[in-house]
Design a protein around this nucleic acid. Structure first.
Lengths: 202, 202
DNA sequence: GGTTATATGGACACAGCGTACACATTGGTG
DNA sequence: CACCAATGTGTACGCTGTGTCCATATAACC
């Protein structure tokens, strides 16, 4: 996961006094991220994080206001958010590639479940909801919107469309299948989404 | 809410012995639905439901396997699922009307928050997830898919499109804004979604 | 070296879940 | 009508997790 050294099992035993703040913080964050990937938000507990980090719960409560805040920080610590958006001047190819990559991230790695659980938790945790929007969904939306806007300027797309709504119809549709899996989330599905939108249904 | 008689405040006091099973069941269900609309899944507690229904927790545990199951049953009891899909032979108008109605349901009634919380809870409650798919999202999807399929047969839409993906790009996009409210869920948004898809982006 | 900041262990009260047991009452059976 | 089984009720228990407080130990800083 995020362990550089294979230090394996829970840190053996810890003395009582103060330890370097940054070190403890880092250990808590990687522990939080690991636990999140391993169990999702279901088994994500302040107590477990503290135990796995070899820290005390008090320390966590001092630095993070809510469980959600800690989870989000831990997630970012472990997954190193890859926020790249390749821009090859072919908007259809770019959207397709980006969407297919997202589908694979969600389907083939634990990140999918974690994202689903974070969104779920955000429904009843306003602080997490804000943080998630500002630090994750917001930036990701912005990248897609920029790409679409550039394509509009290049004349590849109609100039009067609303890029934000397009984002919802591509990524939002995938999130929908992630959160309410009536049907599977496949690469073919991602390609169909782009095709539907670009060509139109008529 | 679901009270036919204004019997108001919590059932005063209850004797100790057995009561008619159906009656207790009904009282628990309306209590569950009311509580859900009032507080959402956040404050939805077996104990509160039992208190409001004037029943004992044991009874609830006997009949419902999980908190989610009870919540879903309660929700259906109170909202009387309006599963109508007007079919006026004009698919664009039908989709728009249906989607706009959905947006208003989600925005202007407590049902929106309840749906969001149910989906959230379903992320960590497999039984609820199954029940939600089979009893709610599944049937609703089916209605939209049928309408789209009929429109394809009538020649109003291309014959080679995948109706299911269209559903995700309309309703799924709305769910996305409900669950990750980066941007508001408006009637104009709903109309834009239909327009984007039908006309195409080029 | 002395002071301050901070991590730690331990204890507490509280909420909610899930279960168990004894008792009360109803519904049905004979 | 008498009895039995089914089922709701009250109460209590153990468990997990939360959030808070305290005293103590130790690092970091001046």
């Amino acid at each position: 996961m995020a362990q550089l050294t294979p230090d394996a099992d829970p840190p053996p035993r810890r003395g009582r006094g103060r330890r370097p703040a940054d070190q403890v913080r880092a250990e808590i964050l990687t522990a939080a991220g690991d636990l999140l990937l391993a169990e999702g938000m279901a088994g994500f507990t302040i107590e477990k994080v503290a135990a796995q980090a070899g820290a005390s719960r008090m320390t966590i409560y001092k630095w993070w206001p809510s469980k959600g805040a800690l989870a989000l920080d831990g997630y970012f610590t472990v997954v190193a958010p890859t926020l790249a958006f390749t821009d090859t001047a072919d908007i259809v190819a770019d959207l397709t590639n980006q969407l297919v990559a997202f589908v694979h991230l969600v389907r083939d790695t634990p990140a999918g479940r974690v994202i689903a659980h974070l969104i779920a938790q955000a429904q009843t945790d306003p602080e997490l909801a804000d943080a998630y929007r500002q630090r994750y969904s917001g930036p990701r939306r912005a990248l897609a919107v920029e790409a679409i806007t550039r394509a509009m300027a290049r004349g590849q797309l109609r100039p009067d469309i609303d890029p934000e709504s397009v984002v919802d119809q591509l990524w939002g549709a995938c999130y929908h299948r992630l959160l309410v899996p009536d049907l599977p989330l496949t690469e073919a599905f991602a390609r169909t989404l782009v095709d539907n939108l670009v060509r139109g249904l008529r």
